[in-house]
Design a protein around this nucleic acid. Structure first.
Lengths: 141, 141
DNA sequence: AATGAATATGAGAACTATTCACAACTGTAA
DNA sequence: TTACAGTTGTGAATAGTTCTCATATTCATT
């Protein structure tokens, strides 16, 4: 199991390797991303980053998130309602259950579904580049 | 197999039954929705509706689409990139493949995937209210 | 056909999430 | 330490959608 600082360092290394500058603002954002266990949006990440590096602007948060997404170190999700939400890619691939009452996000993973997706695409002459699977659920009574 | 006017009439009936007024603008929109075989967005639906009823405004298109969604006669999709796109609910439930190169939308249906989704949710103490499954694909070479 | 009351409409302002333009600043390789 | 390309904050701009409000329309009742 890797620590938050491990995760942040790995992301930093990925940036350096790609010739992308590691600025104070980016360090702050990488830090909050690494320690986030939820799926925060850009405004929330901005709030958190400001406690570390008060100068960070929201525009920079957005710009940096796009850079990080391009570098493959964060994933952007667009769940129903509200803006995009982010998480680091240091975990295994997974999809999401959204609790429609509480807004809670639960991660799950199903090889079978992934396989079926590939099969369906293949039969239609396609290959899956990426997918989006979200289950909007309610707690069973 | 039902005709476009059947579909439009069913939608009209649903509105009447719910005590919702059937206006010229709504008739125009229901018409274009019924005959659409693609997945148009609000602006596109507005264009099409204007050819039938020139007075329709974009605001009314949006308002009516929300009403129709509440009444369960249209589905709203938020595919990656761009705004919401709509289709009538007169077909069987299905999910979508999006061709990442051409933007083409292909419909597919998989009972197995649906079952697996229910299973996964159930194991975690949830029941699926609705889901979103989109495969972003590229044509196989 | 006329009435009336609630509902729907068009126009444009407002709003939300995000990106852009640009002048000033800063990380990094030399 | 310098040089310069990449990055930043600010505020303006954009896209998609919803809201406000005065006017117009639908439709059940007469």
């Amino acid at each position: 199991m890797s620590s938050e600082s491990d995760t942040a360092e790995k992301m930093t290394a990925a940036l350096r390797k790609a010739g992308i500058r590691v600025t104070r603002q980016r360090i702050a954002l990488l830090g909050v991303l690494a320690e986030a266990t939820d799926h925060p949006d850009a405004v929330e990440l901005h709030e958190r980053a400001k406690t570390v590096e008060p100068s960070v602007s929201l525009a920079t948060v957005y710009r940096t998130l796009s850079v990080l997404e391009e570098q493959g170190v964060v994933h952007r999700h667009s769940f129903e309602g509200g803006g995009a939400r982010f998480e680091t890619t240091h975990e295994e691939h997974h999809d999401h259950i959204l609790d429609v009452d509480t807004g809670e996000v639960i991660e799950f993973q199903s090889d079978k579904i992934e396989q079926l997706q590939d099969e369906i695409a293949r039969e239609l002459g396609y290959e899956v580049v990426h997918h989006r699977l979200e289950l909007y659920c309610r707690k069973k009574t």
